[in-house]
Write a protein that binds this DNA or RNA. Structure first.
Length: 581
RNA sequence: GGCCCCGUAGCUCAGCUGGAUAGAGCAACUGACUUCUAAUCAGUAGGUCGUACGUUCGAAUCGUACCGGGGUCACCA
């Protein structure tokens, strides 16, 4: 029972009726017809712009169409009244009885309330984190990780078959740097007095690995021939770093379905194959590209390179796929990787990247267009920078300086749920200030506390009620017993809960989980308000001792609120608290 | 210089993809604890939606130009 759809169907039927009466043959675009909850209470429970947006197509005046639709809407059972206001808005007030039905609907649907089949079983691939296995995760990665995980949960909830994927960059030059750094750390651990070479990874996170090497090989590694030795270290280093990263992800409550190795592609002939595929399409050629204008390069050399004709698909310049030493650029295996995603039959492919990769987007879009054999929905979500703030000061984090806040250290101070909620409370393409002191505060400053507190209060109320042998109503039959109508604050909460399916829909449609975080705050606010006002008037409390009949629907309302909060937090990957401490 | 993102209350941000008198939280001020958890609530105050044109019944939202902030620009990943 989706009220928006009920109203919408009724409205569109009326529109068709009108069109037939006027003998209009051409089809009418009804996508622009919106049925929504208006901002102002005086504007009813729902309002629609239908009369205004379709006036032209129906070659008529807004108020004339409005009148017809109004009379049709009034036939609908759930509609209490309809008014035609302003420039032609139809403001619809819903029958009070309906809100009772909504409560019983939520009670019976429980964690399925708000679910709908938007994806229709289509396969979606979400690639996120994909951090180089050369160091631990930083806050930027965490934001991408949390975002990707939440979006995955959301898409899964609305009927997509989701694969969460991590692309492991274990093949490029940065791995050689890692190997070299690890070897030096190993030598240092053996007591040799040497500094790390230029460009090596600073920070002491590789020290445990060096110790592992000593445990395993003693001094023997030094005697092994360099090529062979690097191979050994490479394998162990990547394995070790991925273990660290995986455990970081796990402690954030994030699990991946698939880790896709770049090195494996390099070892096979997958990359050659996909490049050849493009060659056949005439999209690969040898040529030179010009230096970007406006930026001065001291050592620019025009150079013949193997290029991918990405300009064919809207990119600014064609992109090199081979370096001067003959090895692949980063882009080449990534092309093959994306070709592989398409080959695996995904209908939706979403890449979640840091904003510093924005220049990479049009290139990827070109790759998808070049390889796609069917219609594929491709989107790159860019996640903006995270600033870590403590004592009102920005903590600078640079990999080069080894100046790092480790995820594990952060987690000692802040729970993963807080991190998740804060990071998801913001649109992904706006920078985020992550203030540790605020996260630790136990007040409304800390948004997840506010939502959790509402949840804990509900749990507490229901528990107390159960002790007094009072229970929420469960279904329609019980509702018949209801004698007292909702008071204003209760109604406000019910209506807020009725918005949940639409919140899910919009969040999923636009790939914007932050809408859920905002909505949960509104639900919590509405609940706290009701709780507080009931407190002031004893007879409106959730529990009125000695009057169980008065309480059943109120308890059901509390229970429904709990259901929605729980569902919402679940989609954000957060477990609600039953009590506060 | 090109491309991408941002600019909304003192601060941090929403704004349902074109709707009605632009909304929250924080900070400020006023008030509410014999409680189903005051880690909360009620209220007051706070705005040329960066600027200017344009598109139309209607613009914070769309277009163009400009201003300001951030990111990025072959042989890194």
């Amino acid at each position: 029972m989706d009220i928006v759809n009920i109203l919408r169907d009724k409205i569109l039927n009326a529109v068709n009726e009108y069109a037939e009466k006027k003998n209009l043959k051409q089809s009418i675009n009804t996508d622009i017809v919106v049925v929504e909850r208006p901002k102002k209470q005086q504007q009813g429970d729902y309002s629609t712009n239908v009369a205004m947006v379709l006036a032209k197509a129906l070659s008529s005046k807004p108020r004339e169409i409005g009148e017809l639709i109004r009379s049709r809407l009034r036939e609908e059972e759930i509609v209490e009244s309809v008014s035609l206001d302003g420039p032609g808005f139809l403001n619809i007030t819903i029958n009070l009885e309906f809100w009772n039905l909504l409560i019983s609907e939520i009670m019976s649907n429980k964690n399925l309330y708000g679910k709908f089949d938007f994806g229709q079983g289509r396969k979606a691939n979400l690639e996120f984190v994909s951090a180089n296995p050369t160091g631990p995760l930083h806050l930027g990665h965490v934001r991408g990780a949390v975002f990707g995980d939440a979006l995955s949960r959301l898409l899964e909830f609305v009927g997509y078959r989701v694969t969460k994927e991590y692309y492991v960059n274990d093949g490029g030059a940065q791995i050689n740097v890692l190997v070299r750094t690890v070897y030096y750390r190993y030598l240092q651990k053996l007591g040799e007095d040497i500094d790390l070479p230029d460009g090596a990874y600073p920070g002491d996170y590789l020290l445990p690995l060096a110790e592992n090497l000593i445990d395993k090989f003693g001094k023997k590694l030094k005697d092994i021939e360099e090529f062979e030795r690097d191979k050994i270290i490479r394998e162990l280093s990547v394995e070790y770093m991925m273990k660290v990263i995986k455990s970081d992800l796990k402690s954030l409550n994030i699990g991946m379905d698939n880790f896709f190795s770049e090195q494996k592609m390099i070892n096979s002939n997958v990359i050659e194959n996909s490049i050849n595929n493009l060659k056949d399409k005439g999209l690969i050629y040898t040529g030179t590209i010009e230096a970007p204008k406006g930026k001065t390069y001291t050592n620019w050399q025009a150079r013949e390179q193997l290029l991918f004709k990405s300009t064919e698909f809207g990119d600014d310049i064609d992109r090199p796929i081979k370096k001067s030493d003959g090895s692949w650029t980063y882009f080449a295996p990534d092309m093959a990787y994306h070709a592989d995603k398409l080959k695996r039959g995904f209908d939706v492919v979403i890449d979640i990247l840091g904003a510093d990769h924005s220049g990479y987007v049009s290139r990827l879009e070109a790759v998808i267009k070049a390889f796609a054999e069917k219609k594929v929905e491709f989107e790159v979500k860019l996640v903006q920078l995270v600033k870590l703030i403590k004592n009102k000061k920005v903590l600078k984090m640079s990999k080069r300086a080894g100046d790092y806040v480790l995820i594990q250290d952060l987690l000692e101070e802040v729970s993963p749920d807080v991190i998740r909620f804060v990071m998801l409370s913001r649109n992904n393409d706006v920078p985020l200030d992550f203030d540790i002191d605020l996260m630790l505060s136990k007040s409304k400053d800390n948004p997840v506390f506010y939502v959790n507190y509402a949840h804990a209060r509900i749990v507490s109320v229901l528990k107390r009620a159960a002790e007094l042998k009072m229970w929420p109503i469960t279904g329609e039959e019980d509702l018949q017993k209801r004698t007292t109508p909702f008071i204003e604050n209760e109604l406000a909460l019910v209506k807020k809960l009725s918005e949940w399916p639409n919140v899910v829909k919009q969040s999923a449609k636009f790939h914007e989980p932050h809408r859920i975080a905002f909505y949960l705050n509104e639900v919590a606010s509405s609940f706290h308000s009701l709780y507080q006002s009931s407190n002031a008037y004893g007879q409106y409390r959730f529990i009125v001792e000695g009057s169980p009949d008065l309480c059943t629907t109120r308890l059901a309302l509390a229970s429904c609120t709990q259901i929605v909060i729980k569902n919402g937090l679940y989609l954000l990957g957060i477990v609600p608290l039953d009590e506060m401490y």
